[in-house]
Nucleic acid binder design. Sequence first.
DNA 1: AATGAATGAGCGTTCATTCAT
DNA 2: TATGAATGAACGCTCATTCAT
Lengths: 210, 210, 210, 210
Amino acid sequence: MFKLAPMKPALKTQTDKARMTSETILHAAESVMIEAGYHNFSIRRVASAAGVTVGNLQYHFPTKDVLLKSLLDHCIGRYLKMFASIRNSAGNDPRRQFEALVKGIFEDLNSKNTTMFFPELWSLANHEASATQLMDDMYAQYRAVLKEVIKEINPKLKPSSVDRLALFISASIEGHTVFIGHGKPWQKQTKKLIKIATQSFLFAIESEEF
Amino acid sequence: MFKLAPMKPALKTQTDKARMTSETILHAAESVMIEAGYHNFSIRRVASAAGVTVGNLQYHFPTKDVLLKSLLDHCIGRYLKMFASIRNSAGNDPRRQFEALVKGIFEDLNSKNTTMFFPELWSLANHEASATQLMDDMYAQYRAVLKEVIKEINPKLKPSSVDRLALFISASIEGHTVFIGHGKPWQKQTKKLIKIATQSFLFAIESEEF
Amino acid sequence: MFKLAPMKPALKTQTDKARMTSETILHAAESVMIEAGYHNFSIRRVASAAGVTVGNLQYHFPTKDVLLKSLLDHCIGRYLKMFASIRNSAGNDPRRQFEALVKGIFEDLNSKNTTMFFPELWSLANHEASATQLMDDMYAQYRAVLKEVIKEINPKLKPSSVDRLALFISASIEGHTVFIGHGKPWQKQTKKLIKIATQSFLFAIESEEF
Amino acid sequence: MFKLAPMKPALKTQTDKARMTSETILHAAESVMIEAGYHNFSIRRVASAAGVTVGNLQYHFPTKDVLLKSLLDHCIGRYLKMFASIRNSAGNDPRRQFEALVKGIFEDLNSKNTTMFFPELWSLANHEASATQLMDDMYAQYRAVLKEVIKEINPKLKPSSVDRLALFISASIEGHTVFIGHGKPWQKQTKKLIKIATQSFLFAIESEEF
DNA sequence: AATGAATGAGCGTTCATTCAT
DNA sequence: TATGAATGAACGCTCATTCAT
């Protein structure tokens, strides 16, 4: 028997290490954004929350802007995955699918991350072009899921009507963030509001006129 | 002929001066908040936008917190006035009143001030207790107007149902800020969206079941 | 008969009012100096402690320097009065007089005012010429009292010896401020220390050799 | 023969640089404290005296408080070394030791550093808890040296008497700072005052009664 | 005798960024 | 990859002082 020569650390190792550090940093960045808000979002806070030196953080994310953009990418990516999984997990009946969709998104508003993250995103989108882009893309994908189901529920709708309905529905849901989100006064009414919302949305979808 | 009563010396001259300066500052503060966002909202920026020295600004608003709170008070006050005037200007038919109300609020979302101010407010409310309070109070007054009309449209509704419907409606409208606001891609769809919204809301109000 | 012209408010009235305000301010200044130290001694703090506007304070004391000098004058004046009264109240026997003197000054060190005021004075005297002058004058008068008694106790002493002994005694007593002053760890040992001090000082006075 | 242990690479190069900068800053801080007094002791003054940017100073001493505490540590450390060296250098005869001790401390009062530093320290100790602590510790060590010699001179003394005598002696010496210190009017009388002091202190030590 | 508005400098502190190692 | 030293600007705030009223 013989001892194996100690494996030269595969070149990927460094990349892995780098990726690990980057992820640690992104995770810390998210928590700073959520706990402290963008107006308190600083490289130093993130570095300290990540247990990393400022210098090292800036090796991975050279400027604050890059860090911010990466963070938005990262966070938004998760919501896109959520939409995709909701779409996949739904059954056959389009109305059932729709109800599940609305319920899923609505309930997500209750989570601290969503409650705290989106208002920051909306504010940022008003002041930073790159955030605007990312947000618009995300909501477009969000609506794409909605649109598919809407079309199935009422196939007679014009494409532009479908677009509008998807916008109305998604915007209406988003608007509840500030009221039924984590720690908000109406949080406990979430279920009943879901019922109102679902019925109203279905009514709109099924009306020919819009 | 008779001597005029000695003109009350404009005793408030100083106070007037102070009020003028304060208003200039508040106005500048609003425009900084809107143009640059809260994360760029600094005493120095506001002072410079107002054409006032930092020292003088802080004579009138001793701390940044006071300035911020005054600004929120000032801005929110304007929305409260808007709600009140909408309520007063409405006619007799409750459905017509409701339609006017929804239309009024929806259209206000298109204004730059509203588009830019509210996301800042929502973000702030997540991180500053005093902003939370002001925002909650404002929305409560907003809903109070809605609730009156809802009750008239469907008098059979339980009070708790009225509350929930008012919340659903106001939240849904607010959610459109990010999509149909000033400079947003869906701005031109505002009218059609108002139609969808109004009908859906009326449907919800007239359903017994919520 | 004729009505008397309404008495012009005796000119002194205004002066009295002014004096009252000045005294209020000086009192407040003293308490700021004692509670907060000279490094926190600001016109604004004094004005606020006195319940007076900054503008009015500066009507009475045009600059911070004037206020400071007046404060030192005022405080030191009280100590001079104390020395004078101690001298007067003493009996005939010079040793008894001396003991009473040492005891009186020593015990005064326990008072909060003295404990807190003198270190500020010493520091100030190192950096502000006017404070140096005032302090030197005060200690000269202090020693003058001591010297009279010393001479009576030991008439054979040369004048320069008397001077030196007075200095040694006064300096030694002053040095205890930091240790037995108000709130200091050795405060409770004051009486026993007075005994040691008195005996040592008398020993020095009665030695021919200094 | 054996291989030399691999030279530790001067790993501390960076640290050395940092240490150098820190020392430059501390030195500048001391001179600001002495020349300008604590009430003029500002980070900016120290930075400028050290030829260092404010930002860099605060990299090494993150807050003013840390800088101040470090400065006190640094300065007080030097006095502790002085006490230790005086204790070690003294000969055998306890009275001779005592005389040398008193003379050494007394003469140190003449130095500019001591004259200017201690009044600041006393003032600080009245207003900043950490300064109080440092000062009390220093004087305790100071007295420890005195107590040893006192016990040897008069072994019959109770411990509490030794404590009190050490306090009386050290306090009396300290009190001379303001009168015989650097640039003070009585500076030239230092020697003669040392004689009076030494004799009086010895008298006190040799009395059974305290 | 008193007030209130305004200025401009300085304060302690945080920050994004650069760079040498 | 990672660290630590340094810069320079901006921040919120306090201050002494001036001046019109």
